[in-house]
Design a protein around this nucleic acid. Structure first.
Lengths: 204, 204
DNA sequence: GAATGGTCTATTGTCAACACATTACAATAG
DNA sequence: CTATTGTAATGTGTTGACAATAGACCATTC
């Protein structure tokens, strides 16, 4: 069999969730925007059932806020104190990940990460900042997943989402690629201390 | 108008979720147990819709694990390394909470907490350990909610659930009440350092 | 006998219609 | 004119029926 790149297969709900997350992160749906189930169902050509599932999921992720019988709306920015706490927690998780991964990354893993960095660079040059944000997240997610599997991704994800919600517009300079490259290089060199420093510097 | 104690009103889904959490924490549904939607729907006298919502919610909380088209099952215990990480993260959150709450608890808050401790004592004497666990959680939840609202509770909750999943049987000695009383006393005395120490001692 | 392929059943995913709650607005009483 | 109550419209919660899928079982082939 040809060693074709495994095409990611996503469930319907995951695709909808992905789309809505993009809309929220890009600022297309600012905080307080109300989500109408019927409307969304028509937009995606589905019934309300799957939409409701997605809304529940995004609510647990912290992007939306729902009240009984009153629907869901895009969550607003966090209290600065809570924001600081979230940054601290996310850092703890990512420091754990790079520590855990130190020396256990395969050549394939490194190649994958290089690919992600390449597409990050590409998106930056196209000035597609929504895409930049998504790729940025996927770089971190790759590390988290390798270190702790789906379980760890699930507890990590809400922090990223809330942080993204707070910095509406990503400060997308070329630093972005450099910061991530620094992390990758430290991991390749199996230099745990430098990797942690690089992660800390990237998460802010 | 009479100042009756406000009776907590829970949505149907929240009640189902509460029941399932109890079943899982009590060990009645050990890890790997498969959840059958139709079965559960009949048990609670509902259709599958709300049940599906609850399953999704508990999955996000980490109690269940779901795969596409294959249903959900009770999640298994964590890798010890991840468990240690979760304890660290939960401690960070609770330390934040007691620090934040220092000096800002109202008399009503303190009375509420005293009430919770009283029912904890009561449940212990009845040797109803599932109830003990639930009240234990509600004590902490009260603090978290006061410090950071629903938002903070939502990110805190998964840690508690996963920790409960790991210690199948609560080590329910009378220490349990004492540890919580120590936290409350430190808060009453507005002694932040002692409160943090007490929290740290309680979360393990 | 092991492996491949094809049914069959149990269970989940999706849908459209109905029941109910909430909100906004209009009608009425004071 | 203001406050309260009744009513209509909008949108969410729930339901039961239908479609699609995964896993088990059996037959067939090499």
């Amino acid at each position: 069999m040809a060693a074709t790149k495994p095409t990611k297969i996503l469930s319907v709900k995951d695709q909808i969730a992905e789309q809505l997350r993009s809309d929220i992160i890009s600022g297309e749906m600012p905080p307080q925007t109300k989500l109408n189930e019927k409307e969304l169902a028509e937009r995606f050509g589905l019934s309300r059932g799957p939409i409701r599932d997605v809304i529940l999921q995004l609510t647990k992720e912290g992007l939306l806020i729902s009240r009984n019988n009153c629907g869901a709306s895009v969550n607003s920015v966090l209290d600065p104190k809570l924001q600081k706490l979230m940054i601290k927690l996310r850092r703890s998780i990512e420091e754990y990940a790079v520590t855990e991964l130190n020396g256990s990354l395969t050549d394939q893993n490194i190649a994958d990460l290089e690919d992600i960095l390449a597409s990050l660079q590409d998106a930056l040059e196209r000035e597609d900042y929504t895409e930049v944000t998504k790729i940025d997240i996927s770089f971190h997610q790759y590390l988290i997943y390798q270190a702790g599997g789906e379980e760890l991704v699930n507890i990590w994800y809400p922090y990223v989402m809330r942080m993204r919600l707070n910095y509406k517009r990503i400060t997308s300079s070329s630093e972005c690629v450099n910061e991530h490259r620094a992390i990758l290089e430290a991991l390749k060199a199996q230099d745990s201390a430098t990797a942690i420093k690089a992660i800390k510097h990237n998460i802010k």
